[in-house]
Each structure stands twice: as C-alpha cells, then as structure tokens.
Design a protein around this nucleic acid. Structure first.
Lengths: 220, 220
DNA sequence: TGCTTAAACCAATTCAATATTGGTGTGCCT
DNA sequence: AGGCACACCAATATTGAATTGGTTTAAGCA
C-alpha cells in the first residue's frame, strides 16, 4: 500500500503556503499534486480531521485549524433565567457606556438621526409608536458607538428585554403626555452626544434609565 | 393635484392581502395599480414611512410593520463583523460596570474564589494556564454581579473574544514573568471588590483592561 | 482476495451574472 | 408649480453554473 500518504500530506502542509483562512486545495487537485488516489488521500485527511488539525465541510473545503464555533448566544436561556429587574440593571450598567462611546465616535448623520428619533418620539400619537421610536433611538446610539460588537451585545440585551417585557405593553392612556419624563432626558442625552461629551452622555443615559426604572416600579 | 393618494394607498393596504412578511408590491407596479404617478405615490409612502407604519430599503422593498433589526445573537456573525480592536473597546466599556455590580453584590464565597483565581494565575507555570485562570477570574466577577443577564452578555463577549483572538496565542516566553503587569492590577481589582467599593473596582478594571490593550499594541 | 484507482453521481456551498428595487435627477407637459 | 414619464444609480435579491466534500460502483493490479 501507499506507505505514508499521511506523512506526504503533512509535508505538504508544512511546505505549501496556505491562504490566510487556512484553506487547502480541494481533494481532487491535492490528490494529483501528491500523486495519490483520492480515496487514499481521503483516508489520510480523515485521520487529520480526527486528530483535530483539520476540519472540512461539503461545499466549503478543507481547512487547517479549529472549526469555527457555531454556538448561539441562547437568548431563550437568558430569558428564562432573568427577570425585568435584572434587565433594567443590565441596561443601567451597559447602555451608559455605549452612549459614552457614541458621544466620542458618532458621525454627523448619526447624530441627526438620533435627534430625529427623539423628535418623532415626542410627536408620537400612540404609545406603540412612541416605544418604536424610543427603541430606534437607543439602537442608533448603539450604531453610533462605531463598535459592531457593542452593537451586537446591545441587540442581544434588547432581544431579551423584549421577550421579558412582552405582554405588559402599556395601553392605559392613549398617547404619551407632553411632559413625559423621557422627553427632557432624551434631550439631555442627545445634547451631550452632539457636544462630544462622553461623561455627560453616560450620566444622562444613566439618569434616564434610572428614571425609567423608578417609573416601572410605580406602575405595579 | 391628486387629492388623496394617501387615502387610496391606505385603502389598498387595508384591502389587499399582503404576503406574510408584509411586503407590498414595488413602487412601479403599485403606481400602476393605483393609477397614480410614481412621484406622488412616493410622497404618500414617505409619509407612511415617517409615521412608522411602513419601512423601506433599497433593493429590498417596502414593508408594513416594524423594521426588523438585524439582531445577531449569532456569535459567528459577530466574529466576522468585528476585530480585536473592537473587542478590547467592548471589554473596556462593559467589564468595568460589571465589576462595579460585582463589588456591590458579591458574596463572601465569590470574593474568595476571585482571589483564588488571582493567585492561581500568578502561579501559573505556562501562559496557557495563566489565561485559563485569568478567564475564570473575569467570569467569576461576572457571576458576582448577581445579574444573570450581565453574565450572559459577558459570556457572549468572551466567546467572541476567544474566536477573534484565536490563533495568535502567545508562546514567546515559557511562563508569565513574576512582575507581569496584570498581577498588581488584579490585586487592585480584588481589593476594591472586597472593600465593596464599586467606583474603585470599576476604575481598577478599566485600568487593567487599558493596560492589556496597550500591551497588545506593543506586541505588533 | 485485498487494495488502489478512476469515474460517476449527490447534496451543500460558493460564485458570478442578471434582475429588482428604492432613491434621484432631468426634461416635458399641462 | 406640479404631475408624469423616463433614464440612471447603488444596494439587494435571485438565479444558474461551477466547486467541493461525501459516497458508490466498477475496473485494474498485486
């Protein structure tokens, strides 16, 4: 039998320069290069795969290194373990710092959109639409941080929040009152971001969320 | 002028059966259906969009309902969109606040375990084991926040971090030097938590992560 | 028999070309 | 002015062909 296809293969891996993603040529080409049949090459590749130095997938190819993790941040698990109080705690811990980054990195267009969301929220004729614009305001602040990972975490947080807060949508009054506490707080946040004042922005967001939290308690 | 294109459009929305994703026909078709020019239709659609009953995007179409935020709880998606610099930015924004919560809420047992992780990290004979204990230290701090949602977000952040930082494992020296900068920084963090001093804990963690970040830059 | 090779086929995936779609401008008409 | 038809653009969707790991089959060779 072909005595050491595996050794030959390892030699190839050592010598050949692989693209930065670690992909190595398809089986058919590689078999020709190494002057081996495909079946034998596959056996060697199988052992490499078994010992973890290589991973492969139909249609994608064969790669050296570790298989990319396919773990989802299980939002359902978080939802089951947490509660509205924790959600507010997490928001109070997290969002002010996101806001600080936003104040330092937001583009002019993003500041304009944040301000637009604020105005639309103030003018919202129903609570439904108010919350829609409020959500969008907070998320645009996340985008303005210019950090896609922070944005991803914020989205996760919001997904959990929506799942936890579900069902208890406010429908008591028809529309947010003109002196709704959030309006002034939103303005302070937007002002601080527009001023590029990170500390003030973080403080304003923290005050806003604390205010939301206390009103949540009042509602029960 | 066409007096009530908007009313006609709303009538269409009410009568016509939309596909379950809420997509409505493209502008050109819709204009013909309603027997209106595209420009006027666009004006009506613009108001609908402004009042939030509709969202639109180039290439996608026009949809009724809320714009779906492209929430990526998918860690792989986060990994692909982010980079090591963003990861450090997110850690610097997020972990200090988690540490603050930990200082306020940690149990005695958790403080003891955090301290234990710190000692084990100092004594680690290899970089591999050092990072293992370092990871566990940071995660125990997350547990000590007593907020399962914060912990979940921290886990997500760490999963992304591991995936992004993968492959560039340090192997230069055999073991962390005795005067490694992290050791003193870890002690400050643990002290502040043990003192129940939230602000000091957050500051210490922030200094620690900034230090890690600067050393990362030096490595290049 | 026992093992390899070559070839054909399959399903998952990628890739490139094409078609749609919202956004924008221009000229023409009333 | 304002409505309309038309042409263009950039972002997105869609489609079809090519690629790739996996599997089977048959032939070749010891």
């Amino acid at each position: 039998m072909e005595m050491d296809v595996l050794a030959k293969l390892k030699g190839f891996l050592a010598s050949a320069e692989l693209p930065d993603d670690g992909r190595l040529p398809p089986e058919r080409e590689l078999a020709q290069s190494l002057d081996v049949g495909r079946a034998v090459l596959r056996k060697a590749l199988a052992t490499l795969q078994a010992e973890g130095t290589v991973w492969r997938h139909v249609g994608k190819g064969t790669f050296v290194g570790d298989r990319p993790i396919d773990t989802f941040a299980d939002i359902n698990a978080m939802v089951q373990r947490t509660n509205p109080l924790e959600v507010m705690g997490a928001r109070i811990a997290f969002e002010p710092e996101v806001t600080r980054c936003a104040a330092l990195n937001a583009t002019g267009a993003q500041i304009a959109e944040i301000r637009n969301c604020m105005i639309k929220a103030q003018q919202a004729p129903t609570w439904r639409q108010y919350e829609q614009w409020d959500n969008r305001l907070h998320r645009t602040i996340g985008e303005a941080s210019q950090n896609s990972l922070l944005l991803g975490l914020l989205d996760t947080l919001n997904a959990v929040r929506r799942a936890v807060t579900w069902g208890r949508l406010r429908q008591t009054p028809v529309r947010p009152p003109a002196d709704h506490h959030s309006f002034a707080e939103h303005e302070q946040i937007v002002e601080a971001i527009a001023d590029r004042d990170g500390a003030a922005a973080a403080d304003a967001m923290r005050r806003h969320l604390r205010s939301v939290e206390s009103h949540m308690r009042d509602m029960r």
